Amino acid sequence: MEHATNDLKEYITDQVIPHQRCNVNINPDHITMLEGTKIKKQHSRKRRAHKSGTLSRREYAELGLNTLPTKQMKYEEALPLHNLWKGYVREHLELREGAEVPQVHDPRYDEFSRQLVKLDLHGAKLKVIQSKCRTLENLSGICIMDTKNVLKLLGRDHRLRTIPKSECVFGLRVGNMDFTIFGQHLNIRPAERSVKKIKSYVEPFM
């Protein structure tokens, strides 16, 4: 501490004009020395990626959670799901009793078409009205599972059938309105389809 004080006195004295340095009088009690500390380097720590508590799609598939029994399900067991879907679709499309499909020149037509494309089909009664595979035509049932590429329909004969979307045209009835759905426009997961921005010129429903 004393050595540092002497160095400071010499430095201050050197700043004074030489012929006046003899008049410099420094009181040690008026000197306050601040001792600095070395700044510790902060080592950046990489955040460990915490594994999500939800299952990945691969784990989901490996556990067989995306499969359904083909023979144990009964058509009557799917009817409550269909009844729920009927209430959902009326609320989603804002349909009232006796409502009709807006015509092309109607201002509501574009928005109505977009909402149709975003429909969740779980619980809907669908019928294959046209297909590249003739054996699939006229098959119908309640949609139990809607994936990116296929629909799984439970028929009145209690059989669960897997129908490829891209190769089929489906018929859908809502109240007194009949719609034709082109499956190639539904090749997207339902959760993604509900938030996907739909281009106005795409008309998968007729």
Rank of each mutant, 00 (worst) to 15 (best):
Y88R: 03
K196A: 12
R161V: 12
Q184F: 08
P69R: 01
K51L: 11
M33I: 15
Q72Y: 04
V128G: 12
N83T: 07
L34V: 13
P28I: 03
R156P: 02
M73T: 09
I188A: 11
Q20T: 06
M73F: 07
P80D: 02
Q130G: 09
S131R: 05
A124F: 00
T32S: 11
L153I: 08
L55T: 11
H82S: 08
D146A: 10
Q42N: 05
E76G: 11
C22D: 15
G64A: 10
I26T: 13
V195M: 05
N149G: 13
P190T: 09
L68E: 04
F170H: 04
E77T: 09
S166I: 14
R108Q: 15
K71H: 14
L81K: 15
V117F: 02
T67V: 11
I144M: 13
L34S: 04
Q184K: 13
R161H: 11
L84W: 00
I198M: 13
C143M: 05
V202T: 07
F112C: 12
I144Y: 06
S140M: 02
L79I: 15
T162G: 05
Q15V: 04
N6I: 03
T54A: 12
S44I: 09
Y109E: 13
H19D: 03
H92R: 12
I12R: 06
K165T: 15
V169N: 12
E97Y: 02
G123V: 04
K51V: 15
P190Y: 08
D157I: 04
T162W: 00
V128M: 08
R57V: 15
A191S: 08
L84S: 06
P80R: 04
K196T: 11
C168M: 10
I31K: 05
N25F: 00
H50L: 15
